[in-house]
């Protein structure tokens, strides 16, 4: 339902009392309202929807999720290898 993309905060400024930021989305810079992320700082990443930052991205969780996938991959590769060996021994 909701197209939202991750961007890095490059600069924070004030527009008539509303906290705003310049956010970098893979080389594209767009003005984003930061009113809903009062604690965000320069260098942090946020998820942005219709010009509003709605969630700060947690780097540690992101890495952890990727690590889970990697472990799953290793597990899978290990299983595949095991199966191949079993198949080979079954064939011979």
């Amino acid at each position: 339902m909701c197209l939202a993309v991750p961007g890095r905060v490059e600069r924070i400024y004030d527009a008539d009392g509303t906290p705003m930021g310049k956010l970098n989305f893979g080389g594209v810079v767009k003005d984003v309202c930061l009113a809903y992320l009062p604690d965000i700082g320069v260098g942090d990443y946020a998820i942005v929807h219709v010009g509003f930052a709605i969630s700060q991205i947690d780097e540690r969780s992101a890495l952890e999720t990727l690590r889970t996938f990697a472990e799953l991959g290793i597990l899978q590769e290990g299983l595949d290898e095991l199966r191949e060996k079993q198949d080979e021994s079954a064939e011979s």
């Binding site: 991750p6 890095r8 989305f25 990727l66 990697a70 799953l72 991959g73 899978q76 299983l79």
Partner: peptide
């Protein structure tokens, strides 16, 4: 883009799908 491209990796996608198939 950071936090997007890492989550589009084709090899890992196929591994996850294989894992779903396994369980």
């Amino acid at each position: 883009m950071k936090y997007l491209s890492e989550f589009r990796d084709g090899r890992r996608a196929r591994m996850l799908a294989a894992e779903i198939g396994r369980i």
